[in-house]
Amino acid sequence: MKITYRNSFTGIVTILFVTMLFSCEGNLKGVRQMEMPEDAPQAIGQGINLKYTDSGRVVATLKSEKMKDYSNKNFPYREFPEGLMVEFYDEERKKNTVTANYGVIYNETGLIDLQGNVVVITSDSTELTADQLYWDQTNNWVFTDHPNTIKFKNGARNKGQGFDSNQEFTNFRSRSNVGVQILEEETP
């Protein structure tokens, strides 16, 4: 068989085409990241009204005017720059409410950072106000190092500079505080 210039050229073009075909990967995520500015969120939601359910029962609702989803970052998070309101319901349908001017939920750690006029009202009317509050969802623990005020259902008040508590406020540790405590005596 005689090899001609045309056969050589066709063979080279075919090899180049096949090489290019197999060297292309379908990396849609990489292409999308090239299109987005580095600090841009993956998605922006307006008028958010989320309902979280467990076995068909609503356990929480989250409302916010705006949510920015940064799930595309190395340390993913969701930001609520215009504030949020969350309502939690226990098995007996008792409601606890949390409001704040700003919030961030860190996906990997389960930590929620609430800032600006943070108000927590529990189902038994305990009210906590603070400038900033952290909630560790994994350990069901609430804490802050900022000034805070707690008004308990029995009329007791506590002003402090930081505290740690379980999310039901039944195991409460306050630091550097002033308050009025109401103690009930047990009769034998």
Rank of each mutant, 00 (worst) to 15 (best):
M1H: 11
K2E: 14
I3H: 13
T4Y: 12
N7D: 06
S8R: 13
V13T: 06
I15L: 00
I15V: 05
L16H: 03
F17W: 05
V18A: 05
V18T: 00
V18C: 07
T19N: 05
F22D: 00
C24R: 00
N27E: 11
R32W: 00
M36F: 05
P37S: 06
E38V: 01
D39K: 00
D39E: 07
T53D: 00
D54H: 09
R57M: 14
V58G: 03
T61F: 01
L62C: 01
K63V: 12
K63L: 12
S64T: 12
E65C: 11
K66C: 03
M67C: 07
K68F: 05
N74S: 15
N74M: 10
E79F: 11
F80R: 11
P81S: 04
P81I: 07
P81C: 06
G83D: 15
V86C: 09
V86A: 09
F88K: 10
E91Q: 14
K94H: 15
K95P: 08
A100L: 02
V104D: 14
V104S: 11
I105V: 15
Y106I: 03
N107D: 04
E108F: 11
L111V: 05
I112T: 12
I112D: 04
I112C: 14
V118R: 06
V119Y: 06
V119P: 04
V119G: 03
I121T: 15
T122Y: 06
S125D: 09
S125W: 03
T126I: 13
E127D: 13
T129C: 03
Q132K: 02
Y134S: 08
W135E: 07
W135A: 04
T138Y: 07
T138V: 13
W141P: 07
W141S: 04
T144G: 15
H146D: 09
N148Y: 04
T149H: 13
I150L: 15
K151C: 14
F152W: 06
K153S: 07
G155P: 03
N158Q: 14
G162R: 07
D164S: 09
D164G: 10
N166H: 15
Q167F: 12
Q167M: 09
Q167D: 04
E168T: 11
N171C: 00
R175P: 07
S176T: 05
N177E: 10
V178H: 03
V178N: 13
V180Q: 00
Q181P: 00
I182G: 10
E185M: 04
E185H: 08
P188D: 11
